[in-house]
Computed example of a mutant assay.
Amino acid sequence: MCKATLTYLLLFSALSLYAQEEDFSFLETRPVNDKFIVDYSDKLSVKLFGSLKSNTIAHVNHETEDKLEYKPNESLNLGFGVGYRWFGLDVAFNFRGVNNDNDQFGKTKRFDFQSSIYTRKFAGDLTIQKYKGYYLDNPEDYIPNFDPEGPYPIRPDISTRRYGASLLYVFNHGKFSFRSAFIYNERQIKSTGSFLAGPFFSYFRMDADSSLIISEAESEFDLSQDFRGSEYIRYGLAGGYGYNLVLGHRVFISLSLVIGLGPEIKKSQALNGVPADTEAKFTGRVATRIAMGYNAPKFYCGFSAAGVFAGERDETEDYLERSVSNAKIFVGKRFNPPKFLTKKKN
């Protein structure tokens, strides 16, 4: 992201904060239960972080559960974030010199946008991913005497596209705070949990020049199962539970598990003498969030991760597993906001 674009985003968001605060009031809970939550949204939060995002696929044998797992060359991004009121912005960069393993894992071209919005009543996720260039992560299972220090089998031809959105309603939003664990404009001071529920939607497509099955593994998998050009559309409703465990008012562990159910439409291309096909079935989806750290009135630090897993086991044919994840480690500090942010409109 160029500096001009970043400056514009920060300036526009800062100028519109007060004007839009009333428009978003229906997303909040006023007041919160101060025996469970301390509100820091009137403070300006600044943080430094490192993040690692991934987008994994795997061809799975439906009988043995053996798999050929492909990953992009994952890169550590470093960045900074700012938060005030309901607004938060994180910007990360891939610095030269931090990720120098293209010779071992190949080069991955990517556009990866993963955003989470946490109000007191809702938790929403939006994902837009385009990846090109993968490597086989478990070659030692199929290639005799494979050297893990040497180059991995590289597939620059594999590309994936993924679009997804989900929304969760937090039932116990007066006492349970997602924001304390993931954006730190609040602090959970007493352990509690909440039921969660809401809709989800996702689209996924994988393309490649040849099958995911390497020659050394042809005897282990069904060669007629070729996922090139396959598209998966999934939607439905999800429900689960989240819990914030607080130790000494400042140390915390946050866990949530949400299981979704709904139809999945799979569209397959005509390949290997098998005609194009469209099928629909009822499948599941698993989404998890985890965070742990230290949250004090002025200083905070921690680790967080979120992941979505799809690709339910098929009893009759090989299937394609898909998963997406985002992990982050960060340290931050809260300040009194500058006057132009707190100035009331006329």
Rank of each mutant, 00 (worst) to 15 (best):
M1H: 04
A4P: 00
T5Q: 07
Q20G: 02
D23P: 03
F24T: 07
F26T: 09
L27M: 14
L27T: 12
L27C: 09
V32K: 14
V32Q: 13
D42S: 14
S45T: 15
K47Y: 12
L48K: 08
F49Y: 06
S51V: 13
L52D: 02
N55T: 06
A58Y: 10
H59V: 00
E63C: 03
E63R: 14
E65I: 00
E69F: 02
K71N: 07
K71V: 02
G79W: 05
G79A: 03
F87G: 02
R96F: 09
N100M: 12
Q104N: 02
K109I: 07
D112W: 08
S116F: 15
I117N: 05
T119L: 10
T127G: 01
K132H: 08
N138F: 12
G150N: 07
P153C: 00
P156D: 15
D157L: 05
D157P: 08
D157S: 10
R162M: 11
Y163G: 05
L167D: 04
L167R: 01
V170R: 00
S177G: 08
F178C: 01
A181K: 05
F182M: 11
Y184C: 04
P199W: 13
I213N: 11
I214Q: 06
A217L: 07
F227P: 03
F227S: 03
S230H: 05
Y232G: 01
G236P: 02
L237P: 02
L237A: 12
L237E: 02
A238R: 06
G240T: 07
V246W: 05
L247H: 11
R250F: 15
V251H: 07
S254L: 04
G260F: 00
G260S: 00
L261F: 11
P263V: 01
I265L: 12
K266A: 14
K266R: 14
Q269M: 00
E279K: 06
A287S: 11
T288N: 05
G293L: 08
Y294I: 15
Y294D: 07
G307Q: 12
V308C: 05
E312H: 06
D314R: 10
D314V: 00
V324P: 00
I329G: 13
V331R: 08
V331W: 10
P337A: 02
F340Y: 15
